[in-house]
Simulated scan of single mutants.
Amino acid sequence: MSRWKILLEKTLWKHIGILAGSAVVLLISIFFFLKIYTLHGQGAPVPDFTGLTEQQLQHLINSRNLRYTIIDSVHIDNMPKGVVIEQVPGAGQKVKKNRRIFFTINAWTEEQVAVPSLMDYSLRNAKVILESFGLETGDLIYIPSEYTNLVLGQHKEGKPVEPGTLVPRGSKIDLLIGRGLSSETTAVPDMIGMTLEEARRVARSVSLNIGATIYADTVATATDSLNAFVWRQNPPSQRGFQLNLGASIDVWLSIDEDLLKPDEPVELPEQEITDDFGDEFF
């Protein structure tokens, strides 16, 4: 082998060795740089914020050079309102400065649920429905009715509550329950011109119920429904006309005030009357 060839081979291996050594040094340098830059292993444990309000946790957050965001709220009955119930990262996990902590807190306001429609359900079914909505059965108010153990009304704190009304979870709903007809009777009240709610109050005051409610075509909106008045009732209010306690009165409602005007006398056409034998009488 010539001197030049040997010299070239030595130079080649020398360069390869230099490149390999440089690569190892570069990798070690990068590793130590990243360790210093990211403060590897120098994170501080996250405090336990559970049970603290937002105002209470702010000082602790600032003293640890951390940041936070409240991402959600839930309702738990047996915990104070506004306190932290969950955090991410969890307590004890090591994090670096300026890390953001995410909190879930107990809601400040009570959870609201919609009141279901309980009318015309049996008492047993009404109780099951209330429980499924997170509500409780309140007082049972038995009233005379031709129906026994049927829900005829729903109240909250002594006032009627419409289906869909939002109330706090756990609220008590009082139920008006039919207990069958009474042998006692009462005069039929005159409800012409009253709103439906006024008619219901008047009917209850004499131990009667409102039966069918028939709205005219002119009642097109929710406001119309509130303003609609009774223009016809069956049975009508007549002197000496009596109903058993608990019986129902059907009402027709409209917003057309012309229906309240007294009817003008109408001359009826003369009709033919026949007896069983076909003879005509005039």
Rank of each mutant, 00 (worst) to 15 (best):
K5E: 10
T11M: 11
H15S: 11
I16F: 14
I16N: 09
A20S: 14
G21F: 08
S22Q: 02
S22I: 12
L27H: 07
I30P: 03
I36M: 05
G43K: 07
P45T: 04
L57G: 03
Q58G: 00
Q58L: 07
L66V: 07
I70S: 09
H75W: 14
I76L: 14
K81G: 04
G82D: 13
G82K: 07
I85M: 00
Q87V: 04
V88T: 14
G90N: 09
G92D: 11
K94N: 11
K96H: 13
K96F: 04
N98Y: 11
N98C: 00
R100T: 09
F102P: 02
T104S: 06
W108R: 13
E111Q: 15
S117R: 13
L118I: 01
N125S: 14
N125V: 11
I129H: 12
F133C: 09
G134R: 08
E136K: 15
Y142L: 08
I143S: 05
V151L: 01
L152K: 02
H155E: 15
P160F: 10
G170E: 13
K172Y: 12
I173G: 01
L175G: 04
G178E: 01
G180Q: 06
S182P: 01
T186Q: 02
A187T: 03
V188C: 00
M194H: 01
L196G: 05
E197S: 12
V202Q: 08
R204N: 09
R204F: 02
Y215T: 06
D217P: 05
D217L: 13
V219E: 06
A222C: 03
L226A: 11
L226D: 07
N227Y: 03
N227F: 02
A228P: 09
V230K: 02
P235N: 03
P236S: 10
Q238W: 01
F241T: 07
N244K: 13
A247E: 04
V251T: 03
W252K: 01
W252E: 06
S254C: 09
L259N: 04
E264N: 14
E264K: 15
P265S: 13
V266R: 15
L268E: 14
P269I: 07
E272M: 13
T274Q: 10
D275F: 01
